[in-house]
Computed example of a mutant assay.
Amino acid sequence: MPKGFEFCVPKAAKAVPAGPDWIHEIKYDGYRARLVRDGEAVRLESKAGLDWTWRFPWIVETARKLRQARFAIDGEIVILDVRGISDFDALHSGKHNAEAQLYAFDLVELGGDDLRQLPLFERKAELDKLLRQRAEGIFVAPFEPGAIGPDLFEAACRFELEGIVSKHRERRYRPRTCDWLKIKNRAHPAMSRRFE
């Protein structure tokens, strides 16, 4: 089975970078996870290394249906409400585990190849190819380029979302010197939680 990987953990920031080389993703409110498949063996793990393969069957079943049999995805386990907004309380309750999906935002390994040295935009292109036509169970995190970042953050706050994560499109996946930036909506309930 492909090895697990160390997570790239975003640093808190107060301002959204607006240069053309940055991309911006909505920050979904859920559980960070890694999804690793090697043939029929699929493992879904929490940031703390807990085995959640049994807990979120839809994600695991979707992973097994993909044509590529070896990959490692970085993402967020979420339950979406009718508006398509992540509902942390529903996820945390444990009552809706069968509805949980993976919001996939990075591809760390594919077909036995370690992709961490590739620039982010190439990893995202490979992730898009991997998950093409798989809109349910595991879905690709949409992102917006460059100058739109500050406006996207304002919109995220207006819609009562947790915030955004900004990443430089050319950077490698570097957990120990992670340069991803998270800009949080200070009015969101996640600000008062002790864990994520």
Rank of each mutant, 00 (worst) to 15 (best):
F105I: 04
R193C: 11
E109S: 12
D106F: 09
A155R: 14
H96E: 10
G30T: 03
Q101K: 00
I148E: 02
P189V: 12
A104I: 04
P20I: 04
E154Q: 13
D114S: 05
L115Q: 03
M1N: 11
I79C: 13
G4Y: 04
L131I: 03
L152Q: 09
M191P: 00
P17C: 10
E25W: 13
L131N: 04
M191C: 09
G30L: 09
H24V: 11
V42M: 02
P119Y: 02
R67V: 03
R171P: 00
R186E: 15
A190M: 02
R132Y: 07
L107S: 06
I59V: 15
A141K: 13
S86M: 10
L44H: 05
R158E: 13
Y28R: 05
A98K: 02
D81Q: 00
A15N: 00
A69W: 05
P119Q: 03
F139E: 00
V140W: 00
P175Q: 15
A15W: 00
A155Y: 12
A15K: 04
L181V: 06
G19D: 12
R123C: 06
P175R: 14
E136Y: 06
E76D: 15
R32S: 14
G75E: 04
Q68C: 08
V82W: 07
G112C: 13
F143D: 15
K14C: 01
D106V: 08
R134Y: 06
I138E: 02
H188V: 11
K167D: 06
E144V: 15
V82E: 15
L161V: 07
A69L: 06
D128Q: 13
R43Q: 12
A90D: 00
E40Q: 12
P145I: 13
P119D: 06
R172K: 06
A13C: 13
K65N: 08
I183C: 06
E99G: 05
G111C: 06
D114I: 09
D29A: 14
F195L: 06
F88Y: 11
R64P: 01
L120S: 10
F121M: 09
V16S: 11
W54K: 10
L127Q: 09
D106P: 01
R70G: 05
P20H: 09
P20G: 03
L107P: 03
G4D: 08
C8L: 07
G163V: 11
R158T: 09
R64K: 09
G112R: 10
A147C: 05
L50R: 10
A100W: 04
R83N: 10
L44W: 00
N97L: 07
K47Q: 08
T62D: 02
D128A: 15
